[in-house]
Amino acid sequence: MSPNVKHRERNRRAARWLLGLSLVAALFFGVRVGLDMVYWNDPKHHEQQLEPWMTIGYVARSWMLDPRKLRDALALEPVPDRKTSLGHLARQQNIDFETYALRVMDVIARQKAATE
């Protein structure tokens, strides 16, 4: 076999491998898109959840609450730490995020009930 032919054969094999890997990746993401659709068709999964990046302003807007009242209820300083995230607040108070999120959810539920 001449070096040129060998070279081309190796190149072809590389191309086939890349094709195989691309197909596997496409299939993987295709299946995930399908699973996303199934997940979203279930109304149980339409509820909003608290996440570490959320700010107080964001939470107030999403649950249609007064941001100042929400801050008061969470015992936060009125203005200086306006730009802080829930994850950051949890860390400052030395509790894990899930526990802190439950506490915030509790406040949200109470304030929601008060406004209705």
Partner: peptide, 12 residues
């Protein structure tokens, strides 16, 4: 997931 699927389908 959608962009991942499209990207690898096009590459394939």
């Amino acid at each position: 997931d959608i962009t991942g699927f499209l990207a690898f389908a096009v590459l394939a």
